[in-house]
């Protein structure tokens, strides 16, 4: 019975996620369009609501091309490996007080551990395509994701220290107890999280692995059709997961005035993160590889460590 419930829940989350990704893409295109004094998609359906659906259908109908020189097995496996972990992490996310899949007491650790597997997909995709641009893109991607994994984890540690638990539900409940979202005591951690999350997601201004104007889309240059769709799906799923994670950690998850149900608050807060990412993409130029690395190692990591020290001091002295 438990198993059935779990499978059902996973299917529901998957379906919700597909819808979520569909409209996240539309949301992105609308936001960026408006910032660029354009209208964004508006041809399919009212307000362009079916634009992404049309795009996906087009991708699914395309010929499935595997380059002759590609390493076939890895090439096929890569999109799946990119998508699977970004979906798996949704198991520990708690959408509202009652709506969740697993009440895992190492939720934070699980999330961070599993999500870092996404980079395998990137590496495999870039390597197996047998394309020089893809190779460069994937190597850049892996270097970047490995480097930014560290400040990401360290920034989350502050929250873990304050709340004393790694359970994501526990963290939200703790915020409820002290009557304050962690964004206030953990503002530095929040900023570090935000920056390293962008790098983790390969989003602009840190979109080096897929730098359109340099590497011709980087690691997924050779992908087309539904495999490409899978990569895109993985990217946006991961974006949603990261913003959901941030909502849980820093913005008090489903907490909010009672006139709206918890899940609505949760999604609204996630939208803020998504908006910030799209806003960044519309504004900033791309950073350079060496600057990015230097920034990660020389600025973010020391700051994150400092944040941990300060948090620990506060925790012990103030007795939170």
């Amino acid at each position: 019975m438990d198993l059935l419930y779990m499978v059902l829940f996973a299917v529901v989350v998957l379906l919700g996620l597909l819808g979520g990704v569909t409209y996240a893409i539309l949301f992105e295109r609308k936001v960026i369009g408006w910032m660029q004094i354009r209208n964004g998609p508006n041809r399919h359906g009212p307000w362009g609501l079916f634009q992404t659906i049309a795009d996906v259908l087009k991708l699914l109908m395309k010929e499935d091309i595997i380059p002759a020189a590609a390493d076939r097995k890895i090439f096929v496996l890569a999109p799946i490996l990119a998508f699977a972990p970004s979906f798996t992490v949704f198991a520990v996310l708690s959408w509202s007080d009652t709506l969740y899949a697993a009440d895992l007491n190492i939720g934070v650790l699980y999330f961070l551990g599993v999500s870092s597997m996404t980079m395998l997909g990137v590496l495999m995709g870039g390597w197996s395509s047998n394309n020089k641009y893809s190779l460069l893109g994937s190597i850049r991607g892996v270097a970047q994701m490995v480097s930014y994994e560290i400040p990401l984890v360290l920034s989350v540690l502050g929250v873990v220290i304050l709340s004393g638990t790694m359970n994501l539900r526990g963290i939200v409940q703790y915020q409820d107890d002290i009557g304050m979202w962690f964004i206030i005591p953990q503002f530095l951690g929040f900023v570090i999280y935000l920056i390293s999350a962008i790098a983790e997601l390969n989003r602009s201004p840190f979109d080096l692995p897929e730098a359109e104007s340099e590497l011709v889309s980087g690691y997924h240059t050779e992908y087309s059709g539904f495999r490409y769709a899978f990569f895109m799906l993985a990217e946006y799923t991961y974006a949603i997961a990261i913003s959901a994670f941030a909502t849980t950690l820093f913005l008090g998850g489903w907490l909010g005035p009672a006139f709206l149900p918890g899940i609505v608050w949760f999604i609204l807060k996630m939208c803020i993160f998504m908006f910030i990412w799209f806003w960044l993409r519309a504004t900033l130029p791309r950073a350079r590889v060496d600057h990015l690395m230097q920034f990660g190692w020389k600025v973010l990591i020391p700051l994150a460590l400092l944040n941990i020290v300060i948090t620990a001091v506060i925790k012990v002295w103030m007795g939170w």
Binding site: G33, W34, M35, I37, R38, N39, W279, T283, L284
Partner: peptide
């Protein structure tokens, strides 16, 4: 720069359909 892009966010669009 964020101010500039946010400012355009609310401005009238100039696309010709």
């Amino acid at each position: 720069g964020f101010g500039v892009t946010l400012n355009y966010f609310r401005k009238k669009k100039i696309t010709i359909q």
